[in-house]
Design a protein around this nucleic acid. Structure first.
Length: 541
RNA sequence: GCCCCCUUCGUCUAGCCAGGUCUAGGACACAGGCUUUUCAUGCCUGCGACACGGGUUCGAAUCCCGUAGGGGGUACCA
């Protein structure tokens, strides 16, 4: 049976790179009728954030990435949170010490730093040199009693290590390049390497799909597996997704973009900016000088404050930008992988069916938001009406949109008349005219120039108004007929009549089809806006 | 610095392992056109790539070597 796992460390929101890794792990499992696990790697007490696990799980679920075993639902090989498995790790660490495969050491940070600098100065790779005679347990206890930091290191062999990788084939790491690495930190927690290897064995993981950044760790993991008599899972090290600016698409991207924008614009009022981000002025300066990084929501708030669009990095960013999970999943599946059929637009089920682990490619890929938008357009058309409505409501709630006040029927109508939109945000924008009132209509200056001041827009609107008032019923067909009749009678193109109406009721040149827009707005408000517009045109002319 | 990985249109990629069928295919973007009451959507056309240099071979995008460029790692992070 194929068993895969996604093992995030709970340091914040799920970012798009993590989502991609999780997706491939899931596809690998589902395609083969296997199991997919979620394991939380919280062995770094300093970096964990308390809400991160919940956030990550929410984001995964939203994407449709559902696990069979995990911290919330349990499973036969739990717990699935590493901080709750300390005794297990301690047993294996002790076993490694007892069999002479690992040893204590108590170098200070300063000593290690010195060794590294020395290696650097000699232009050679830093390798930790273990002492001729290894410290005993008594000596370690003694050192600890004296207040020194004690860690445990794994003895690395002096021979070549070959990693057999599904993506890269055989990768040979030459002898003499391995440093004894730490498996237990001075706070008693295992390092990632130890915990990960032990858990993968105990949880019976068969396939490890992860980013290329872990390729260099694999020799260490294999040494650990051999020393402990564990099976060796199959490895697949995927290419990474890079951002337009170059470099790994990382969580730091947003904070970097914002900091740059603030620094590049010295005219900014920093006091109000800091207030928007709920920071003190000192904290803001600290951030700008690169000494600290505010939390994700604070960064978002500050960017909004100065009207800056940050690149979407976290899954929630894409959600808030109006993308569908289906589109996101489909798109990231095609970053570093291709379907054997050549098909690009795929549902989740099709992705599972078409998944083939031999079709990973080795090259890093750039995240192209334009193509994502195109995929989103496709998926907006593909998902069921009910599903789309659900996503739309979720989107409006997340954004605190005034549009959330509409009932399901109205929202479904808004979605229907916006067919062909690229994102849910586009839908919201296109129908934003429904949320303002006739009294505080603002006209787009370009629309005024192009439409209202040209020809005899006021005369046309005057007639439109009269005919609309005379209408027995306010429906799409009748409204359409009024406009059409006027076009024939006056020998005008549709645009000559429809555009002035559009600007009159929306203030802009962009909205859903004019008859649909009128129906959505309602009779009273439509006529009121047309009347106001006539007044306005005559006042400025 | 050292170690590892990678290099096909602007971008994501197919082809490469098993060399000829590749005047290199698709998708997104871009440009132009058609449809159209605006914006989108839809349809059509166009533009556009084997990083470079050597080798092997009758023949190389495909195999080998080198150069350049990009990425990753180099932690008591994961």
């Amino acid at each position: 049976m194929v068993v895969t796992r996604f093992a995030p460390s709970p340091t914040g929101y799920l970012h798009i790179g993590g989502a991609r890794t999780a997706l491939f792990c899931l596809l690998m499992a589902r395609h083969n009728g296997g199991k997919f696990l979620l394991r939380i790697e919280d062995t770094d007490q300093k970096r964990n954030t308390p809400t991160a696990t919940q956030q990550v799980m929410d984001d995964l679920r939203w994407l449709g990435i559902i696990w069979d075993e995990g911290p919330d639902c349990g499973g036969p090989n739990g717990p699935y949170k590493q901080s709750e498995r300390l005794e297990i790790y301690n047993r294996y660490i002790q076993q490694l010490i007892d069999t002479g495969k690992a040893y204590y050491c108590f170098d200070t940070t300063e000593e290690l730093q010195e060794m590294r600098e020395e290696a650097q100065a000699q232009k050679r790779q830093f390798l930790y040199r273990r002492p001729e005679t290894l410290p005993t347990a008594q000596e370690a206890a003694q050192a600890r009693a004296e207040g020194r930091d004690v860690v445990v290191r794994m003895i690395m062999p002096d021979s070549d290590i070959v990693v057999n990788d599904l993506v890269r084939g055989e990768v040979v790491f030459p002898a003499g390049t391995f440093s004894d690495f730490v498996i237990q930190k001075s706070d008693g927690f295992p390092t990632y390497h130890l915990a990960c290897v032990v858990d993968d064995e105990l949880m019976q993981v068969t396939h490890i799909v992860r980013g290329q950044e872990h390729l260099m760790n694999t020799p260490s993991h294999q040494v650990l597996q051999d020393a402990l008599g564990f099976r060796r899972p199959t490895y697949a090290h995927m290419s990474v997704t890079v951002s337009e600016g170059g470099g790994k698409l990382s969580k730091r991207e947003r904070s970097k973009t914002l900091a740059k924008a603030i620094i590049d614009n010295p005219a900014l009022d920093k006091a109000s900016l800091a207030a928007a981000g709920e920071l003190t002025l000192e904290q803001l300066e600290d951030y700008l000088s690169g000494n600290s990084t505010p939390d994700s929501p604070q960064i978002t708030a500050m960017a909004e404050h100065i009207g800056l669009h940050l690149p979407e990095i976290n899954v929630v960013d894409f959600k808030a930008a109006g993308y569908l999970p289906e589109a996101l999943v489909n798109f990231i599946a095609l970053l570093g992988w291709s379907s054997p059929t050549g098909q690009e637009i795929m549902t989740f089920d099709e992705l599972i069916k078409n998944f083939d682990s031999s079709r990973f490619n080795k090259t890093n890929s750039l995240f192209d938001r334009k193509k994502l938008a195109s995929f989103n357009t496709e998926h907006m058309k593909m998902v069921s009406k009910d599903k789309l409505l659900g996503y739309f409501k979720e989107f409006l709630a997340l954004r605190d949109s005034a549009m959330a006040k509409f009932d399901d029927n109205m929202l479904a109508e808004i979605l229907r008349v916006s067919e062909g939109a690229r994102t849910l945000e586009d839908v919201e924008n296109k129908c934003a005219f429904l949320l303002i009132s006739a009294d505080n209509m603002a006209f787009d200056p370009k629309a005024v120039q192009k439409v209202l001041l040209k020809d005899s827009a006021d005369v046309i609107l005057e007639e439109v108004k009269a005919r609309f008032i005379a209408l027995a019923d306010w429906n799409k067909t009748d409204l359409h007929k009024v406009i059409e009749d006027m076009c024939t009678e006056r020998q005008l193109g549709m645009g000559k009549v429809a555009q002035p109406i559009r600007v009159a009721i929306t203030g802009t040149t962009v909205s859903p089809a004019i008859d649909e827009s009128l129906v959505l707005l309602g009779r009273a408000e439509s006529i009121k806006r047309i009347a106001k517009t006539i007044e306005y045109v005559r006042s400025v002319r």
